[in-house]
Amino acid sequence: MRFPTHVAGLPLRLDREARRLWKDLAMSIAALLCVVIALIPLGSILVEATARGLQAIGPSFFSLDTAFGGIGNAIQGTLILVALSSLISLPVGILTGIYLSEFGKNPLGASIRFFVDVMTQVPSIVVGIFAYSVILELGQAGIVSTRLVFSAISGTLALSVIMIPFVARTAEEAMRLVSTSTREAGLALGIPRYRVILRIVLPSSASALVTGALLGVARVAGETAPLLMTAFGSGFGFSGLDHPVESLPHTIYTFALSPYTAQNQTAWGASLVLVVMMLLISVFSRLLLRSRYRVGGAAP
């Protein structure tokens, strides 16, 4: 039998040349392994959340309150918190994005962009403390009711502060995708700049704007830490903006630490709902972007 001289097209004799080729292969495999290792937790989370979560999900899972074994009030609360935060964050964030993309090519714009970037990284628990402190101080000064400290309103304040910088940056990126010639065409027709922005730039970047908004929603819908000290949580359904409100992440947190197996299962069920929501938003926004701009791998 002839001894093989090559494996997978690479020479077996380890002269200098061969060592280089083998090393190349080894490093490629090592790098691939890194990807595989990183994906193990993701895979495990998806599998476990599906397997354990499905056991919790029954006919009444989505309708009952958390006090009675369902997550109806948590879904309701998360929807309310996210809707209110979007109502504040989208206009403010998009206006900031407009400034950055349309008027921001100067030192002021550059430094605003820089600090908006920094803001997206402020720890969310710090934002929670901020919202709590603001409302507490206002309450003690008699400007608002101190009941608002733990309420849907303070939760909304915290989530908005987290969402605004995120929306601002994605809105800026979205509007930058609109070509300069499109803007110039509008301006050449004698349309004032603000109307070019509102009637041409914004609509042209609509799908990217929607993507940014969705990603912002995904980001705050999973926030837990700031809600611990603001929206707080409740075992029952929504009872007013000035009352504590339950949310999916809060349900997961409290039930994960619970000694009761049934509540642990509810936590997995709630996680499954939250993760599926995140994945749907992620996939949907990716499709939305691709269909329009064909974002592709700009391979070097």
């Binding site: 937790p41 989370i45 819908a221 837990t224 997961i252 994960a256 993760v275």
Partner: peptide, 10 residues
């Protein structure tokens, strides 16, 4: 995209 609290539960 996986929320922090879900990592905690896992």
């Amino acid at each position: 995209a996986v929320p922090s609290v879900v990592y905690g539960l896992w």
